[in-house]
């Protein structure tokens, strides 16, 4: 139980980002309307925004 919850804690964010990335990659390729392209841009922006959010230099306490 502990092991399972630990794996979930470690992997939930990477798995969610990965799923959004796949969704974004597929949506613009298979979808023809602007809404699919917009979904692609939104989904593929996720890894970039997450990377910038956490990696942005901050003052250390």
């Amino acid at each position: 139980m502990m092991r399972g919850s630990l794996s979930w804690r470690v992997w939930r964010a990477p798995v969610a980002i990965s799923a959004l990335t796949l969704l974004g990659l597929a949506s613009a390729l298979w979808g023809e309307h602007l809404a699919w392209k917009a979904l692609c841009w939104f989904a593929l922006a996720t890894p970039v925004v997450v990377a910038l959010w956490f990696a942005w230099p901050r003052k250390t306490p």
Partner: peptide, 16 residues
């Protein structure tokens, strides 16, 4: 930490 963070968030795109 930066290497691990950036690597894991871009893993799917990088693999593809």
């Amino acid at each position: 930490d930066l290497h691990n963070l950036l690597g894991i968030v871009t893993m799917t795109w990088a693999l593809l």
